[in-house]
Write a protein that binds this DNA or RNA. Structure first.
Length: 264
DNA sequence: ATGGTGGGCAACCCA
């Protein structure tokens, strides 16, 4: 089974790119972030037309929004709280009915956190830290099993998850308070499935800013998108593919699709 | 130190 996570940065604008991604990667399940479409305006026919008879979405006007498209039957899991009581559509969960049994899938879009890495001066950074604390607490109180957590977590925790550890030390996405919190979250029941395949000493990116004249030449990337699995699913891990070429598609997202293969 | 480029959606918000 192949699961793709992708911050698509507007689902409606990039429907043709979603179709291209499906053609090239043929995922069984697609987790999207930043769909930027209210549920009532969701392109209703698109999932079925692309071969995904099952889908759930949680969107809102203008910002955020997540969706799961699936070839595999699934049911909603609505047990998680309304993170930070904001109703801001940053998480959706489902239980996939796989051939080996049910697997819980979480799709997260963690707040980006603004520019200033000081919670007193920057409410968006404070929100980000609080969000990650709350997620860590939730999984501590509700230990996950046979679970996969994916999404744009907007934190690059390891030295080689960014192009320059030194230069990004105080840049939101790579600050110590974020990394501490994310490490605690991960530790509450998950393992880093991407680093299962790529050693920590190797550079690994999923995002390249729009603000570079040549993203490939400068290669100032960060690993903001993640795939975590519970230890009971580690033996099922089969492969990882970062679809880097998607960054060169016409009208690209600044994030590229990340595919994980599991024997389920 | 600064600004660079995107999307949403109608003035700036957000990334």
């Amino acid at each position: 089974m192949r699961i793709v996570t992708w911050n698509i940065n507007s689902l409606r604008l990039r429907l043709p790119l979603l179709e291209r991604m499906v053609t090239e990667l043929s995922p069984d399940v697609i987790c999207l972030q930043e769909t930027k479409v209210p549920d009532e305006l969701f392109p209703e026919a698109a999932p079925g037309a692309l071969g995904y008879p099952f889908h759930f979405r949680r969107g809102m006007k203008g910002y955020n929004g997540v969706a799961i498209l699936s070839r595999v039957p699934m049911r909603r899991d609505e047990t998680a709280p309304d993170w930070c009581l904001k109703d801001d559509r940053r998480h959706i969960a489902a239980v996939l009915e796989t051939p080996t049994g049910p697997v819980t899938l979480h799709d997260f879009y963690v707040p980006a956190g603004g520019d200033i890495p000081d919670p007193a001066a920057n409410p968006k950074y404070a929100h980000k830290l609080a969000f990650v604390d709350e997620a860590a607490d939730y999984f501590a109180a509700n230990p996950p099993a046979r679970s996969i957590l994916v999404g744009d977590l907007n934190i690059a925790p390891l030295e080689h998850d960014v192009w320059s550890h030194k230069q990004l030390r105080d840049v939101v996405s790579h600050t110590e308070p974020e990394i501490e919190r994310m490490t605690r979250w991960l530790g509450n029941g998950f393992t880093d499935a991407m680093r299962h395949f790529v050693p920590p000493a190797e550079k690994l990116y999923t995002w390249w800013s729009y603000r570079n004249r040549d993203w490939r030449a400068s290669n100032r990337g960060r690993r903001l998108d993640h795939v975590w699995v519970t230890p009971d699913l580690v033996p099922a891990l089969r492969g990882l593919h970062i679809h880097q070429e998607a960054r060169d598609w016409t009208g690209p997202s600044d994030h590229v699709p990340v595919a994980i293969d599991l024997a389920l």
